[in-house]
Amino acid sequence: MALKKTTVMVDEADLALIKEAAAREGRTESEYFREAFHIAALRTRRWDEDWEIPRLDFGGPVTAEDIDEAVADGVADAR
């Protein structure tokens, strides 16, 4: 990945938090800023066509108990 150097003005409090996190986690401040830029870049993406998202019909409302049962069944099947 080719990197390009840039200068960005940031809030002092935000910078202090980044410095603390970098020291605590053994990462560089630059890693945090590259990650933030990447997330911001992903948020700007747009698609020309509509997405074809299938609609799921479960025949009625799904309750918390239905979900708990499905998860329990899935965990039991995985063993």
Score class of each variant (00 low, 15 high):
residue 1 M to C: 12
residue 4 K to T: 11
residue 5 K to G: 06
residue 5 K to N: 12
residue 5 K to S: 11
residue 6 T to E: 11
residue 6 T to W: 03
residue 6 T to D: 07
residue 8 V to C: 06
residue 9 M to S: 15
residue 9 M to V: 14
residue 10 V to P: 00
residue 11 D to V: 09
residue 12 E to H: 09
residue 12 E to Q: 12
residue 13 A to K: 11
residue 13 A to R: 12
residue 14 D to E: 09
residue 14 D to H: 10
residue 14 D to N: 10
residue 14 D to V: 13
residue 14 D to L: 13
residue 17 L to K: 15
residue 17 L to A: 13
residue 18 I to E: 04
residue 18 I to T: 07
residue 19 K to Y: 00
residue 19 K to S: 01
residue 20 E to K: 06
residue 21 A to W: 12
residue 22 A to C: 00
residue 22 A to V: 02
residue 23 A to N: 08
residue 24 R to A: 03
residue 25 E to D: 15
residue 26 G to T: 08
residue 26 G to V: 02
residue 26 G to A: 03
residue 27 R to E: 08
residue 29 E to P: 01
residue 29 E to H: 01
residue 30 S to R: 13
residue 30 S to M: 02
residue 31 E to P: 02
residue 31 E to I: 09
residue 32 Y to T: 10
residue 33 F to G: 05
residue 35 E to W: 07
residue 36 A to D: 00
residue 36 A to T: 06
residue 37 F to C: 15
residue 39 I to L: 08
residue 39 I to E: 14
residue 40 A to T: 02
residue 41 A to K: 14
residue 41 A to P: 02
residue 42 L to Q: 10
residue 42 L to I: 05
residue 42 L to G: 04
residue 43 R to D: 11
residue 44 T to R: 15
residue 45 R to T: 03
residue 45 R to Q: 11
residue 46 R to Y: 02
residue 46 R to P: 02
residue 47 W to F: 15
residue 47 W to V: 12
residue 47 W to D: 10
residue 48 D to W: 03
residue 50 D to E: 15
residue 51 W to G: 13
residue 52 E to R: 12
residue 54 P to Y: 08
residue 55 R to D: 12
residue 56 L to M: 09
residue 56 L to A: 10
residue 56 L to T: 07
residue 57 D to A: 07
residue 58 F to T: 07
residue 58 F to Q: 05
residue 59 G to P: 01
residue 59 G to Q: 01
residue 60 G to F: 06
residue 60 G to V: 08
residue 61 P to N: 11
residue 64 A to H: 14
residue 67 I to F: 07
residue 67 I to V: 13
residue 68 D to H: 11
residue 69 E to R: 15
residue 69 E to A: 13
residue 70 A to M: 06
residue 72 A to S: 09
residue 72 A to V: 10
residue 73 D to V: 07
residue 74 G to E: 01
residue 75 V to W: 03
residue 76 A to Y: 08
residue 76 A to E: 13
residue 77 D to T: 11
residue 79 R to W: 10
